[in-house]
């Protein structure tokens, strides 16, 4: 039995925790914002790596992005991925999720030429695009079964080409059984990440990353990628407006906290009478139960 051939899609994203918005002009100040591997994609990588630990096989990390995105792939390599492909071409600039999914799907088909792809993993979403649309889009384009928000993969059987996953929903977990090939978007927090060994780190540092341009990724049709292939158009970017008025502040003296709180409570009652009405009924019994805070 051969191990599965897995593709993991990873994206390099600006560390949005460090993005600043210019206080006056409201424009984005990206200077010095480090780029990182999309944190959600680490979970996708880990899921794939665990499968490889169990069943063997091969993992290819795939990233579409500018040349610097190589760093994200290198990180993937150091975690134990076998091969890395960077799809990079000026023609991709301005791609929205539809165009991105086209390009990635196309590249995955090329990877499949080397050896058929059994599983594709993506993160739940990116922290810059934040859409969670690319994974499902790639699945559709490849005609693969889509298994989104997966939090567990209890069964993967290569002989029968079948897979059972737990799919998270707001109310519970769907247990789904499907067939390979399929695309899985991985929910965060599914597993602890891993720490590569030193030899793996050295191997990753040394391993060449394959860079594919548009043609190498098998893309003929320019109308499907970049700005042309992107139905959505960014109209306006602006800083969220702040409410004109600031809060009405209740002023109080050092030892008059109780008064201040009672004034506050009166104001709340005045604004939300229904709410408070509803309370008065069911509250009586609890009196005196409270713990005193330190």
């Amino acid at each position: 039995m051969r191990g599965p051939n897995i593709v993991v899609c990873v994206k390099q994203v600006p560390d949005s925790a460090q993005i600043r918005v210019h206080p006056v002009t409201g424009t984005i100040m990206r200077q010095g914002v480090p780029a990182v591997l999309n944190p959600y994609d680490l979970f996708a990588l880990e899921e794939a790596l665990q499968i490889k630990d169990r069943l063997g096989g091969r993992i290819v990390a795939l990233c579409m992005g500018p040349p610097q995105a190589e760093a994200a792939l290198r990180k993937a390599l150091s975690l134990g991925v076998d091969d890395a492909v960077l799809v990079s071409d000026r023609a991709f600039a301005g791609s929205d999720t539809l165009a991105t999914s086209f390009a990635l799907a196309s590249a995955i088909r090329q990877v499949g030429q080397e050896q058929p792809v059994d599983l594709v993993f993506t993160g739940k979403q990116t922290i810059d695009g934040d859409t969670g649309q690319v994974g499902p889009g790639v699945a559709k384009r490849l005609g693969m079964q889509l298994l989104s928000y997966v939090c567990r993969i209890p069964i993967l059987d290569m002989d029968s080409q079948s897979i059972v996953v737990h799919r998270w929903t707001e109310k519970g977990v769907q247990v789904l059984k499907s067939k390979l090939p399929c695309l899985i978007t991985v929910l965060e927090g599914t597993s602890e990440g891993r720490f590569a060994s030193l030899p793996e780190m050295i191997r990753a540092a040394r391993q060449p990353i394959r860079v594919w341009n548009r043609q190498a990724a098998g893309i003929e049709d320019l109308s499907k990628i970049g700005l042309k292939g992107s139905p959505t158009v960014v109209g306006k970017v602006f800083a969220p407006s702040r409410r004109a008025e600031r809060a009405e502040c209740i002023e109080w003296e050092q030892d008059q906290a109780e008064k201040a709180v009672s004034l506050l409570w009166e104001k709340i009652r005045a604004r939300q009478p229904e709410l408070v009405e509803k309370l008065s009924g069911d509250n009586g019994g609890e009196n005196g139960q409270e713990r005193v805070s330190e």
């Binding site: 720490f195 590569a196 060994s197 030193l198 030899p199 780190m201 050295i202």
Partner: peptide, 9 residues
């Protein structure tokens, strides 16, 4: 010796 597994070089 580094903090990684098989970390001697």
């Amino acid at each position: 010796r580094t903090d990684r597994e098989q970390g001697e070089v």
